[in-house]
Design a protein around this nucleic acid. Structure first.
Lengths: 217, 217
DNA sequence: GTAATGACTTGACGATTGGTAAGCTACGAC
DNA sequence: GTCGTAGCTTACCAATCGTCAAGTCATTAC
C-alpha cells in the first residue's frame, strides 16, 4: 500500500520528471518549477531531496544515463554488422542520444559527469575492436580507435541531428522506414569497409601505419 | 571616423557578441545581460534594435549561420575524397557545427530557421552525388541520400561530439594532429567505400534497389 | 538656422528564477 | 505510549529574467 511519505518513491518521481525535462529542453531550458509540476511536487521538496538544481542533474545522470558498468553488452558478432548493430542499439535509446547532444552542445572543456565509467566502457569496446584486428576480422590499415569513432558517428548522427536527417532524406530519424533503410545501408557499408579481402590486404600493406595517435593535446 | 551614433556598427557589435554567446551556451543559457556586457551596450539598446531576444536570435542566424546561398561551393572533386574534403570544411567551421548541435538538441519538431535555403543547398549536393552515380563515379548500390548523410555524419560527428572524440581517441577534436589523422582515415574509408570496382558491381547487381525512401513520415 | 528622425540612456516593471528558514507531521524505534 | 528523525509544507528571499515607457541628444534633411 502507498505510504503517505516514501522518500524513495518521491525521489523516483522527481528524477523521472527531471530526466524527461532535461532531455527535452536541456539544463538551462528547464526550471525547478517545470520539474516540480511534472512530478506533482513542490519545488522546495526537490531542493530538500537534492541540494540544488545541479545536484539533481548529477543524480539524474547517475541514475538514468550512466552506462550500467556491470553487464558488459560487449557482444560483438559479425564484424561487417558492427555499424548496423550499433545503430539498432542507438535507435532504441533516443533519450540517451538527446542527453549526449545536450552535453556536446553545452560542455566545452568541462569535466564529464561519470567520466571514469564511460572511459572504461569505451576502452573496452576499443579493445574488442583491436582484438578483431589481430584475429584478421577487421582491416589492419585502419586505426581501431578511428573505426570506433566512425561506428559511433554513423550510428548516432542521424538520430542526434534529426533536423539534418529530415532535410537530407525527407524522413524523420525516428521513422521506422528510415531506420530500416539506414540499417540496411550500414550493413552494406560495413561489408565494403570491413570485409577482409586478401588482395587488398596485400595491395595496401605498404601503407600500414603503426604510428599511434598521441595521447594528449 | 567613428560617429558617436552609428546604428550599423552597434548592430554588428551586438550580433557579434550574441553569436559568440549563443554558440557557447545556447539560447536559454544566455541572457540579454550577458550579450549586453560583451557588446558593451545596455541591454535595453539590444531590445531597441532587435525587438526581442527571439528577434535577435533569428537575426544572428540569418547573418552568421545561414549558408551563403550565392556561391555554390559545390566543387566536388575526386569521389574517394568526398569524406575527407567535407571534414576539412567542417573543421574550419566549428562555430557553425556548435550552432547546429544546439539546434539539434533543442529543436524537436520545431520549424527550422532558414529552412528553404538550407533545403535547397542540401538538395543540390544530393543531386551532385546522384550525378556522380550516373557517371559511374560512385557505387550505385548505395542510395545517394544515405551517402550524403554518411558523409555529413563522418565529417561532423567528431567535432560536434567532442567529449566522445576525446574519450575514444584521447585527443580533442580541435587538435591539429587528430584532424590530420582523421582526414587521412576518411580518405582511406572513401577509397574503400567509393572506389568503383567492376567485380563488385557485377556481384552486387542483384541487390540494386530502386525503391526510393518515401517523402514523409 | 530648425524640425524631425532615430540612436541611445535611464529607470523602472511584473514575473520567474534558484535557494533559504522555520515549522508541521507522519513514521519507525523503543 | 512518546520521542527523534526525516519527509514535507508554507512563507519568504534577493537576484535576474525579458520588456516597456519616457526622455536625452546627435544626426540629417530642409
Amino acid at each position: 500500500m502507498g505510504k503517505l511519505r516514501d522518500s524513495e518513491r518521491t525521489r523516483k518521481r522527481i528524477t523521472d520528471a527531471a530526466a524527461h525535462e532535461f532531455v527535452r529542453r536541456g539544463f538551462d531550458g528547464v526550471s525547478l518549477g517545470d520539474i516540480a509540476r511534472r512530478a506533482r511536487v513542490s519545488k522546495q521538496l526537490i531542493l530538500h531531496h537534492f541540494r540544488s538544481k545541479e545536484g539533481l542533474f548529477k543524480e539524474v545522470h547517475e541514475l538514468k544515463f550512466r552506462p550500467p558498468s556491470e553487464l558488459p553488452e560487449m557482444v560483438i558478432g559479425n564484424p561487417t554488422e558492427l555499424l548496423a548493430d550499433r545503430f539498432k542499439m542507438r535507435a532504441g535509446d533516443a533519450d540517451y542520444i538527446r542527453f549526449l547532444t545536450w552535453e556536446a552542445a553545452s560542455g566545452r572543456g568541462k569535466i564529464l559527469p561519470g567520466h571514469d565509467a564511460r572511459q572504461r566502457r569505451i576502452s573496452e569496446y576499443g579493445l574488442a575492436l583491436r582484438l578483431m584486428q589481430a584475429e584478421g576480422k577487421l582491416p589492419r590499415d585502419l586505426d581501431y580507435r578511428f573505426i570506433q569513432l566512425a561506428i559511433l558517428a554513423l550510428a548516432t548522427y542521424p538520430i542526434a541531428f534529426g533536423q539534418i536527417t529530415r532535410l537530407v532524406t525527407g524522413r524523420a530519424a525516428m521513422n521506422k522506414g528510415f531506420q530500416r533503410d539506414w540499417h540496411k545501408f550500414l550493413k552494406r557499408v560495413g561489408q565494403k569497409l570491413f570485409k577482409y579481402r586478401l588482395s587488398e590486404c596485400r595491395a595496401q600493406a605498404h601503407i600500414l601505419h603503426d604510428r599511434r595517435p598521441a595521447q594528449e593535446t
